[in-house]
Computed example of a mutant assay.
Amino acid sequence: MKKRPFIAQWIAAICLIAIADLPAHAQGTTIGPSGLKIPRFVSLKSDRVNVRGGPSTDHKVKWVFRRAGLPVEIVHEFENWRQIRDSEGEEGWVYHSLLSGRRTALISPWQTAGTLVDLLRNPAEDAPVAAKAQVGVQVDITECERGWCEVAVQSYSGWLKANLLWGVYPNEEIN
């Protein structure tokens, strides 16, 4: 009879651990070998980045990015290699030193080219327009809070809803 309370306590402890760990698993976030979260957004450090079919230089180059600052999502890590996904959903492997922690995003790349989006002066639906930007434009992220992100492109800045950006997770906080 003394073993039953111990077993019940053990099962309760496991359940509590599982519940405490639930938010990380619910979001699909894990910690990679680098000690950083996976998935996460980063940007390309160079104007020429080879994307390979696997995590070594023995794998063929699938395509080459030619735009520094372009946002990509790290979805897996293996040693010094990062499996990335671009805004079109294509995946490949990039050496870690070609990536930067600088946060950038693309404005609504899923919308029709040429469409204009309002950058607002404040993070509010009724805020005055600070500038207009075309969809697909690459922006630097200054900060994100409560579903809004302050972005900058060239000499213009303003606020956009986070769901209009590819390069930011829903409700992600960036300071």
Rank of each mutant, 00 (worst) to 15 (best):
M1T: 12
M1N: 14
I7Y: 13
Q9G: 14
W10L: 11
A13P: 01
I14N: 01
L16S: 01
I17E: 00
I19S: 02
I19G: 01
A20N: 04
L22D: 00
L22G: 04
H25C: 04
T29K: 15
T29G: 02
S34K: 05
S34I: 08
G35S: 08
G35E: 11
G35C: 07
L36R: 13
F41T: 08
L44R: 06
V49T: 15
T57S: 15
T57P: 09
V61T: 15
F65N: 10
F65T: 08
R66K: 14
R67I: 07
G69K: 03
L70G: 07
L70N: 10
E77L: 10
E77D: 10
F78S: 15
N80L: 13
S87R: 06
G89H: 05
E90Q: 13
G92A: 11
W93T: 14
V94L: 10
V94N: 03
H96K: 13
S100C: 08
G101P: 04
W110S: 05
Q111Y: 05
T112D: 01
A113M: 03
V117I: 12
R121F: 04
A124N: 05
E125L: 10
A130V: 03
K132S: 02
A133C: 06
G136Q: 06
V139I: 06
V139F: 02
C144Q: 08
Q154G: 00
S155P: 00
S155A: 06
Y156A: 03
Y156N: 01
K161Y: 14
K161A: 08
A162P: 09
A162I: 13
N163C: 04
L164E: 01
G167M: 12
P170W: 14
P170I: 09
E172V: 15
N175I: 07
